[in-house]
Design a protein around this nucleic acid. Structure first.
Lengths: 353, 353
DNA sequence: TTGAAAGCGCTAACAT
DNA sequence: ATGTTAGCGCTTTCAA
């Protein structure tokens, strides 16, 4: 028994090989492999046998060629940079420095894996890289794109829309673009923060906002101001931050200088909230007794921060999974209907407020 | 001019379409597109015209089917878990909590992008997920795997080797496996830490090691002990940590209890070093004057930590790029030669020591 | 230097 | 219920 029944020649076993071993036609094997009914149970069994015996694994390229489905989605993190080499090198590190992206990945994989689909990771921070993404989709290498944009003027969503390529965004784009997206009710989240701060007795409340050219930044600020105003606090000092730890520190410094008697701060994300806490601690100001701090996102860092952050939870994993689902449906149905799904935030009370 | 020359039917333009527009054969277009010489410059130009005119983009599946190259690599983060749902959900977040993985991704993409190759992100923390990875490669969906293993008993490398699938590992595997890998000269790195601590005058030095079932953990400890011994310090207190912030804190607590007069600590990674610093600060112990702390990795967190960490730099991005290169060469040449490339660490002096 | 033609491995009509 | 057959779009001998 030197001669294995596995291979025709040198390559991997094909449908043909399995068919021969099972004594049926290629089509029948294909049906069994793809779980299509109308196949005699006895034959099904024979085919399964043959598959096991030969160690057959369907060739994805061949399948993709005929079905026109790559079973692959591009997971792209896009920016708005130019072609400077420094830009490119730093981008990935910057992206992953925020645990946010890991949560997105986790949610996406959670949806894709049971469906035997896979994410191809792409960064689109330069014009070249953006073209590559578009090309990748046009080639049919991926069936669609899940886009997490990090900048307001990111041209990628527009490019995708122009090409009619299936895509779903995380968060509403700054410029209106006919593409589906998943987002959070930021204003409601900000309101929760305002209510909590007020309920715990804060009377001189300020906020460190996110970048105001980004909808999430705008909405969290607007929601916070609005909620405060409705509760008798028409004036809320604001310092604009950049969603980074450092910008949180700088903002806290400015805030302390301008409003020394502040007793509550709403930071528009956890990273900035941590920056604020750090500055407060350096000044020997007690959190939350002298100044209460509320963050936003409930990133893993919020829990391990000191003090543990009271924050507004954004269900990033669920939102990412929903992105994948929307895109999947869009691809399956071929209907280019634009939709949005908005998630509700909830308050997580820990130590900082 | 209603009729566009672009499409035959409804689909995307194909080689056939371009050939028709250019007035040449499919083969010629293919040659031009793939940059094969021996094509008349005039015809080349005509083809390029036609390509632009039709908006042609080669179909990747068709190409892969004949060339047997997917131009795709699997970037897999693997663990050694079982099939518990909790396991799966938490894995991605845990992975990305360490900035290490972002650096790997950055390095990999840096190598792949100019070569029009792309990474498919896969987690392999459960038996099912591992099988999916193997299957993915066997299907030819990816040409090989870049594996970052997070556990000593990870079965994936062995599975890959058994199947003869092209793969390269980040770091030498705990159990010997005939697969190429990229690694750091951990012992040299630990020696740098020892020398620095001693040079700045520390005399009662301890170390928080990594997990001792992982080569990196073992080597950093062995290297540190060896270097200390050679310099007249045969006894070095050790507390084993788990490469996490929390384990660093716990280790520091134990260390302080057992060796109250310690004046220098080498933590086997930055996360643990930060944990140590945090505990030290809480106790009001000055860093570096009372206790100097040296970390390992030079992760982004090292720079933004307080105090900024003196640490041993591991050139993760370069190492990851080298992984990709090794795998690429392995795939191109078809030679299953097992190699290893070892990088040299360097000391980065900041504030903590 | 260019073209004709044979397949890569698979799915999906269509025929039986 | 199963088999036959015609491609999917591309690369690559082989002829010319």
């Amino acid at each position: 028994m030197t001669r294995e029944p596995r291979m025709t020649g040198g390559g991997a076993p094909t449908l043909e090989d399995v068919a021969r071993v099972a004594g049926v036609s290629r089509a029948t094997v294909s049906r069994v492999v793809n779980g299509i009914r109308n196949v005699d149970p006895a034959i099904q069994e024979a085919v399964r046998q043959a598959v096991a015996e030969t160690g057959y694994s369907p060739n994805r390229a061949a399948r993709t060629l005929v079905t026109r489905r790559a079973e692959t989605l591009a997971l792209v993190v896009s920016g708005a940079g130019d072609d400077s080499p420094a830009e490119q090198a730093a981008f990935a590190s910057r992206v992953f420095a925020d645990p946010f992206f890991g949560r997105v990945t986790s949610g996406v994989i959670g949806y894709l894996r049971p469906r035997s689909m896979h994410p191809v990771l792409m960064f689109a921070e330069t014009p070249d890289a953006r073209d590559q993404v578009v090309d990748y989709l046009r080639q049919g290498s991926a069936d669609g794109a899940l886009v997490v944009s990090t900048h307001a003027r990111d041209p990628l969503p527009g490019m995708l829309a122009d090409e009619g390529l299936p895509a779903v965004l995380f968060a509403r784009p700054a410029q209106p673009v006919p593409i589906s997206y998943v987002d959070l009710a930021h204003q409601d989240g900000a309101r929760l923060a305002a209510e909590h701060l007020l309920a715990r007795g804060c009377r001189r409340v300020a906020t460190v906002s996110g970048p105001l050219d980004i909808p999430a930044g705008q909405d969290r600020l607007a929601g916070f101001r609005d909620a405060m105003a409705r509760r008798g606090h028409p004036y809320v000092p604001v310092v604009e931050g950049g969603f980074t730890l450092e910008s949180g520190e700088e903002a806290a410094l400015r805030l302390l200088a301008e409003e020394p008697d502040v007793d509550g701060v709403f930071a528009a994300n956890d990273l900035m909230a941590r920056g604020v806490c750090r500055v407060l601690r350096e000044r020997g100001i007690d959190i939350p007794d002298e100044v209460a701090v509320v963050g936003f996102d409930d990133s893993p860092a919020a829990q391990s921060a000191e003090p543990a952050l009271t924050t507004v939870r954004q269900p990033v994993e669920d939102m990412a999974a929903e992105m994948a689902r929307l895109l999947h449906v869009r691809i399956e149905t071929q209907e280019p209907e634009v939709r949005s799904v908005i998630f509700e935030p909830e308050l997580v009370v820990r130590e900082s407020a």
